[in-house]
Nucleic acid binder design. Structure first.
Lengths: 209, 209, 209, 209
DNA sequence: GATGAATGAGGTTTCATTCAT
DNA sequence: TATGAATGAAACCTCATTCAT
């Protein structure tokens, strides 16, 4: 009849749900993820998730936005302006790869979102904005490199950005099928280091004038 | 000449189910796909799919194997031996990209399979065998290129294969999120052509001695 | 005083499902029973049964355990210690028979369980414990009877227990085939009384020194 | 286009199906048995079973009737008339027990039939007839035993027949639950022999004047 | 704010039976 | 006589969501 103690911690609960959702969506994808699984991970009641986020789709969107925010924050850490173009480009490539390695959920979430034709983020203004920064960084690097005659001309920044991402993303996102085919564990630290070096070589090779 | 209503057609029914499953799995992923959707596409009764394939998982495996077989067949079409190393490498890159463009289901299926840690194909001997061919082609190209002094040395064939795939695969697999971010339609024919050229430049740039 | 429509009643719902399952399993056996039938009897939604019990098998196990508990409770009601050995044995026999008559579900459930090689209860510690009591009662009666020179020696308590059960159980469990063969209704009260007396005579006749 | 050879063996197929059905029904009960399982055991096509027997229920009835016929044949083997009443009764008891031991399917089938309220055999004239013989044998033995002053009077032949069956039937039909409770394997040959002796003692003890 | 009991709709799978050959 | 492909109905079970407390 009398409730002795009920923990109330709105912000804490919200954050726990978000984190749990991130893990669940990353592990199983949008369709494979279960609301039951999320609330169990979060250690909160079912309805609380609905109370805060409205439903599975909205929760997924919020998870996606948070993921993009973290990605942007990670990239913002990188101070490239004072580096030489080649050094800057190398660092950008390594930084991008490192983020995928440290945050495998990024890959799961993006794959899920693409399977659903990006319906969740298509409308999100937040996300779109995040990328202007990246494009600017790349454009600036390219300009300085061309000026210093260490980079070729006629490079499309978008294509370059996509290629930088692609070379690491695909390696990690398809690690299981590739691993099954080549009978190797693609995530062992030495192989990861080798891959990173390879990607740097590919990108710098391409940019060589 | 042609029967308007075919009632018995074992091979045909099996094939129709397989094709329908390919489409459904490609569109929704393994978890999002519905057996109902598959049998409806195939125009057969639900039970028939179970009769032939045993269940959703086995059906998915069969679809995956078929997909790999087709991929191998596509690559086998390419006669590279008589080309110069640079011409051969270009053709390999373009061929690979074209296959992804023409068979978008490959990307969905592989993403699904990787989300599930490749549990379906891990045991499949068939698939593993398919790749020896590709590796051999690449190794042979690299040797000839080095000999002719048009390619650099110290290139890991596996890394190269992964990069060739990655540059096209990621562009297509993430077309919806990238499109949302850059406000472009990545699959319009001109952009596809530009991307293909870009990939060739990246790979050849990297291989330059 | 009484709510016409009760919406929330955890313990009640659980109990209703259990009772409904008991009836359904008793009527149709494990394989013949339908989860739909159970939830319909219980007046709850299908999922609730799964929520509480996990599945058909677990529900059956719980029903079995409850049945054994009731059986034990019924036997515990019988105070035999102060009776003479012959009187005690008669009462035990009549008590056992009465329980089968009043709880026909016991027979259905045990037959079902035996058809499945006792897979459900094999692991259940609960059930095993229930029987030590019965064995002790029988052993004590036998000792006192031998001492008082009213019972023969060399009686295996397990065999005796099985025979006491068998003589009533089989009569009831096979009442329909036996009834069809002998053209009699074996459950009419007079015949039940006669059978009970017969069983007492058989057991006491066997125990006579 | 051309069928090289189709085996035709009407009687053989029918018999194979019947035998397969006996095994399947015995193993899983009526509800647990699968038509697929039966035709697979029999090694014939699905429709053949329907062609010969009409359906699952009719097939079950036929299996039941065959089972009763075999039981009768087994009992007819026993020549009791020339034995002393006590010897004859012992032999009848042992013979009955042996049949249950050697034909465990009898127990499964009868349990299944009783679960369904004997709907299949209720109408079968064949089966009813089989029992007159048994009753006559028992009545004759009882008369001779009373006359020879080795048996008590006032014994109901039906009750006696049921008890003779019960003591063996229940032991075997409930062997799995009893085994789980008493932690014994009830079908090990020594225990079977002991049980048989026990049953003889019980029946003869009861009949002692 | 917080709980978890309860649900309807729909998921995968199974099964006795029929039908074209 | 014989086959096995094909089916409709219904089985068990799951899941996102809601509701009384």
């Amino acid at each position: 009849m009398k409730k002795t103690k009920i923990k109330r911690d709105p912000a804490g609960s919200r954050e726990k749900i978000l984190q749990a959702a991130l893990e669940e969506f990353a592990e199983f994808g949008f369709d494979g993820a279960r609301m039951d699984g999320i609330v169990k991970r979060a250690g909160v009641s079912k309805n609380l998730a609905y109370h805060y986020f409205g439903g599975k789709e909205s929760l997924f969107l919020e998870v996606m936005e948070q993921m993009y925010v973290r990605m942007r924050a990670h990239h913002a850490d990188l101070e490239i302006r004072h580096m030489s173009p080649i050094e800057g480009m190398s660092q950008l490539v390594r930084h991008t790869f490192a983020h995928f390695v440290e945050h495998p959920e990024v890959i799961s979430l993006l794959n899920s979102e693409n399977l659903h034709n990006a319906i969740h983020i298509r409308g999100s203004r937040k996300i779109s904005e995040l990328y202007s920064m990246l494009t600017e960084v790349i454009e600036s690097l390219l300009e300085r490199g061309v000026e210093a005659k260490v980079f070729r001309t006629n490079v499309d920044p978008m294509d370059l950005y996509i290629s930088i991402s692609a070379l690491g993303y695909f390696y990690l996102s398809n690690q299981h099928t590739l691993g099954a085919i080549f009978h190797k564990n693609l995530t062992d630290p030495e192989r990861l280091k080798a891959r990173e070096d390879h990607i740097v070589e590919v990108i710098l090779g391409y940019l060589k004038p």
